[in-house]
Amino acid sequence: MNEVQGPTPTGTSRPYKSLTEALRGQRIDPVNHDFIRAIVDAVGVSTFIDRGRYIEAIRRGDGAALHIGRTYTNGFTEDEIVVVGGRPLPLAPSEGRAPYFYVTHPSELPSAPAGVARPSRTAGTRAPAKPKSEPRAPKTTPLDERDYGVCDVCFMVKTPSGGCACT
């Protein structure tokens, strides 16, 4: 999980008025909104800033700012325990922001239920992808060549019609 550090690509940053505005502005999957809101409430965040590829969430007290991306939230310390939904979150070491740790959002987890209901799209957005077609049957291999015999005159292999080059 490498993330670009610093201001937005244009060199500017702007504060968001609320977490809801920030999540909408970054186009974060609505399935993750409640999860991110629970993290922000558990940690205590005062300000949200647009950093281009992620939201920088400034904590009220001590601690590093959280970086909220589309698929992760980064900025936890190794000994920090964040409880969401009655269970502690599994933290993984950050590749681009050592010594901090990150948590993957629920929509990206392989153990997420297959039928997770997502909000329907409104007019003006892309149509849903076509369903995958059934897998094709494996190609059949050609049959072994048939033996049509050998010509007694020129010793060439006979064709399926029974002829050869000499007739």
Rank of each mutant, 00 (worst) to 15 (best):
S161E: 15
S18K: 08
N74W: 01
V40F: 05
A98Y: 05
I49Q: 09
T159V: 01
A22Q: 03
A127Q: 10
N2H: 14
R59A: 05
R27F: 10
T159I: 01
Y102L: 01
G63C: 04
E145L: 04
P90D: 00
Y16N: 02
F76I: 04
S94L: 05
I28S: 00
R70L: 02
I81F: 01
T141A: 14
V82C: 07
Q5R: 15
E134V: 15
D29A: 14
P15A: 06
P119W: 09
T71M: 09
A92C: 00
R51W: 02
D79L: 08
S107K: 10
V84D: 10
L19G: 08
R97Q: 03
V83M: 13
I49E: 01
P131R: 08
S120K: 13
K139A: 15
T77Y: 14
Y16L: 04
Y148A: 03
D34N: 15
Y148P: 01
S18R: 06
G6F: 09
P9R: 06
Y54T: 03
G63T: 13
F48I: 06
P93R: 06
P90E: 03
C151F: 12
P7I: 14
D147P: 06
R27H: 13
P113C: 00
A92Q: 15
A42T: 07
P142Q: 11
D29Q: 14
S13G: 09
I28K: 05
D147Q: 15
Q26S: 09
T159E: 08
